[in-house]
């Protein structure tokens, strides 16, 4: 102990301390980042070699125009190396890809590929580089005993409602972009959107929102989707605008109708 207190003012002491600090933070960071990577990489290898070759054929025929051969990207589309199977499954599975046209953002439309073809495309793209994989069934099970609807709702309001609206009815973003309403979106696609961040959506990685919390959010969304509206027709869940519009049109029309009727009655 005496030696340490004597040496602490040594010129090299500061340097040694700095080195030590850098080593610790660097080490912790690499552990933390490989944790995500390791998770992402594990399920990437469930596809067979045949899936990958079939996927490559489909990719070259349908996607390479914009994303380039080997998915290296062109001026018209980004590289897909490292986007992962989840991204392909979401974009192709909701019909957003292949894109109908260049625009503010890709629109959902009837999907162009069947489930097998989508899986083959996902297999090919995930073989190009590690990325988020298709979510595990247990995180899509909204009836799971650990599901906490209240937690899901709170997380949804904090992380999602500013774009998707508190009732998940969707909302506007700048310059023609928008966050779609989430009514009728499948559990898998909601999960994949969270981990891959399609269009303008940010990525909510597993260290940001844990898979169990993602399941809570999905369960909350499915609950409000299926519970119906306790107070009657919900007028699009758009809040005061549709309520105001309703009272100024239907409400006042009814009132004026009765006024005219009353004043045309002879006394």
């Amino acid at each position: 102990m005496k030696a340490l207190s004597q040496k602490r003012r040594h010129p090299i002491a500061g340097l040694a301390l700095l080195l030590l600090g850098l080593l610790i933070t660097g080490g912790l960071y690499s552990v933390a980042s490989t944790m995500n990577q390791a998770q992402a990489a594990t399920t990437g290898s469930t596809y067979s070699a045949e899936d990958i070759t079939e996927g490559e054929k489909l990719f070259n025929a349908n996607c390479a125009t914009c994303h380039g051969y080997e998915a290296v990207g062109t001026e018209d589309g980004p590289t897909l190396v490292g986007v992962g199977a989840a991204s392909v499954d979401f974009q192709v599975g909701t019909g957003r890809m292949p894109m109908q046209m260049q625009g503010p953002q890709a629109q959902a439309k009837p999907k162009q590929f069947n489930d097998e073809q989508t899986a083959q495309l996902a297999a090919y793209v995930s073989s190009l580089g590690a990325g988020p994989s298709i979510p595990d069934e247990q995180y899509l099970d909204t009836d799971h005993e650990d599901v906490d609807l209240g937690n899901g709702g709170t997380l949804f309001r904090v992380n999602c409602a500013m774009c998707h609206n508190a009732a998940a009815a969707g909302g506007a973003l700048t310059r023609g972009k928008f966050a779609p309403g989430l009514d009728g979106v499948s559990e898998k696609h909601i999960y994949e959107a969270m981990v891959t961040g399609p269009q303008n959506m940010p990525v909510f990685s597993d260290s940001n929102i844990k898979p169990e919390d993602k399941r809570d959010i999905i369960a909350f969304l499915k609950e409000i989707e299926t519970q119906g509206s306790p107070g009657g027709a919900k007028l699009g869940s758009l809040g005061p605008v549709s309520e105001g519009l309703f009272i100024w049109t239907a409400g006042l029309a009814l009132i004026v109708g009765f006024m005219v009727w009353l004043t045309t009655r002879s006394s």
Partner: peptide, 13 residues
């Protein structure tokens, strides 16, 4: 949190 589509009732709009 601030929800998308946050509006007041029509008369404050």
């Amino acid at each position: 949190p601030v929800s998308a589509g946050t509006q007041p009732d029509w008369y404050i709009g």
